[in-house]
Structures are given as structure tokens and as C-alpha cells.
């Protein structure tokens, strides 16, 4: 799978989710923040994007703890996303 295919698949999984809130947040993150991530953070984001919305949302709103420090870094960046 080439880079275009990889990003398009990720884009689909970020913007066709169960809840509008997550479409907006993950879509915005993918366009603006994802290209700036290092490889470990990018991998952590892909794992987060594969989660179901009701698993991911508690991490973003802080009601659940992240499992590792890289994931926590990415979640902190997600929390800072402002949807235009």
C-alpha cells in the first residue's frame, strides 16, 4: 500500500465514524496535525483512530487515562484541536 492509499484509508476511518464530534475532531487532526507527527506518534494516532468513538471520547475528555506516554502525547494534541 503506497502513502496515498495509506492516508486515504486513514482519512476514511477518521471522517466516517459513528459520531459527528469524532468526524470533526479526527478529520481536522488528520489534515493539520498528523503531517507534523513523528513515526511513534503517527502509529499511536492510527491506533487511536481504530478505536470506537465511545472508547476514544473518554480519553479525549480526560475521564479515562491513556495507556502509555506516546498515546498521552497524541491525545493531548487531539484535545487541543479546534474545529474551524
Amino acid at each position: 500500500m503506497d502513502e496515498r492509499e495509506r492516508i486515504n484509508r486513514l482519512r476514511w476511518r477518521c471522517t466516517r465514524r459513528a459520531m459527528l464530534e469524532m468526524d470533526l475532531l479526527l478529520g481536522e487532526f488528520l489534515e493539520r496535525i498528523f503531517p507534523t507527527l513523528g513515526p511513534a506518534q503517527a502509529d499511536a494516532f492510527i491506533i487511536l483512530a481504530d478505536m470506537e468513538d465511545l472508547e476514544l471520547w473518554p480519553l479525549i475528555n480526560g475521564s479515562r487515562e491513556c495507556t502509555d506516554s506516546v498515546q498521552a502525547e497524541v491525545v493531548a494534541l487531539l484535545r487541543d484541536v479546534r474545529v474551524k
Partner: peptide, 12 residues
């Protein structure tokens, strides 16, 4: 399905 079943909008 366009998405994995448990990612359907019924979740909302």
C-alpha cells in the same frame, strides 16, 4: 457497510 458495523451512526 461503508464502515465496520459497530461504527454505524446508531451509536449516537
Amino acid at each position: 457497510s461503508k464502515v465496520f458495523p459497530t461504527r454505524s451512526h446508531t451509536v449516537a
